[in-house]
Design a protein around this nucleic acid. Sequence first.
RNA 1: GGCGGCGUAGCCAAGCGGCUAAGGCGACGGUCUGCAAAACCGUUAUUCACCGGUUCAAGUCCGGUCGCCGCCUCCA
Length: 487
Amino acid sequence: MSLKVYNTLTKRKEDFVPQEPGKVRFYACGPTVYDYFHIGNARPFVVFDVFRRFLMYRGYQVIYAVNITDVDDKIIKKANNEGVSIREVTQRYARAYLEDIYKLRILPPDVNPRATAHIDEMIELIRKLFENGYAYEVDGDVYYDVGRFKDYGKLSGKKIDELQSGARIEVDERKHNPLDFALWKSARPDEPWWESPWGNGRPGWHIECSTMSMKYLGSTLDIHAGGEDLIFPHHENEIAQSEAATGKPFARYWMHNGFLQIRGEKMSKSLGNFLTAREVVKRHKPEAVRLFFLQKHYRSPINYSEEILSETENALMRLKHVLENIERTLEGKKLSEIEEKDLTGPEKQRWESLQKNRLRFIQEMEDDFNTAGAVGQLFEMAKIANRILEEEELSENNQKILKFIHRTFHEFDSFLSLFGAEEETGVETGTFNQLVNILVQIRNDLRAKKEWALADEIRNKLMESGILIEDRKDGTSWKPVKKNKNN
RNA sequence: GGCGGCGUAGCCAAGCGGCUAAGGCGACGGUCUGCAAAACCGUUAUUCACCGGUUCAAGUCCGGUCGCCGCCUCCA
């Protein structure tokens, strides 16, 4: 089986082959921190998080970088409107961004670079573009000379001439070409600025992503991802800058997510028809938001409504109930691994269906991350589990089948993050389990050394925290013990 | 005007040339229950916007028509 990815650059689904076997350099465009991000912005954050983690699940070493844009016109405007400093605005919303992605159970990226911390590198990149003849200066502004870059338009499929005729923006006569974009903007009053060879100023938007992605991931990225509205001009310009500077291909695979619509219209800040992710997460489970995105293919448009979110929440509960019911049924039972040769009749059929479901799930994920198709397999497995749970007496093999289903769900949840959250605390169970397992392991090491006092201390302390340790001849297990509570 | 995408049951949605068109929500029927709720089980598209064409075989490929959306300007 091999992974296939739809590449915007070639407009085709391609076999995914990273430049270095087993290693994926993955960059996704992050937020401009001038406001809370809305539920439409959340889509790429969630889906690319799942893709990243699926790649990890498949054994790739993934370096995942997501930038934070903290210098930009909109930030300046916001600060001026509120009469506060730029720094205050960016700190407030950068923190809010981190809080919100945490709530959505998005794993923190490996690198989360901020633009203002990379001004020197940006200046260096611009200097390189001057050296290579792709940049020019006018009155302290520096522009990229689009006409000099032969491949301009290769990502968006646009031709420079056609763009010119269709350009609706007023033409700046100082530019060689109306499509030339700012690499460096000279300082205006009340704007933040940094020193540069071209005078005081601040970087243009596009140069940030080129600079930071290449700094942390190298000249050629394996995957560059973002919303489809970034294809032009943002990603087109990133390619122009990066490739003109390094002479190497900038990114091997370009992935773009489709838009979220509300009442048949694109959700956007400028249209004012947005709901912040934090509002939505107050009304609906974060896992339901994730499932909402995952039940659609990431490249298709998706329609938001409260009703659809509620429906998704019901669907999520169906899956969670299965897990809970299996847990209750199997509680305290010790089951060995399933022996296929012992299976006959309906048990065998169930087992074979489940194997197909599991395989199919992975195949769907590998087929350009078809999460909707994959999730369907989960519901089919849930159906089988429920049929077993309905039975009066559970055979040993049926119990083992239930156990298999439970394990498979959690296996896939390493990248789906739909289950396993502690409802009240928001603490991720996976992390919690890992911590307890570490303690149990340490204790076993101590027992091996016959350091009983400390080992018992760990057991007692865990018991006090509601964790029961069980030493058995085939190993140590543990489980949370329910405190006496009504209901 | 240029470029790109979409149109599958009441709603959401997978499907990318060939087993009986996944799955979810809802609705209806049933199991459970003292009753109810919850949960679970079952049923729910001779048909894939429309018209032609290619093929032994088409939601699936090609052409056209209609409708919707996005990009071409900051935007995930």
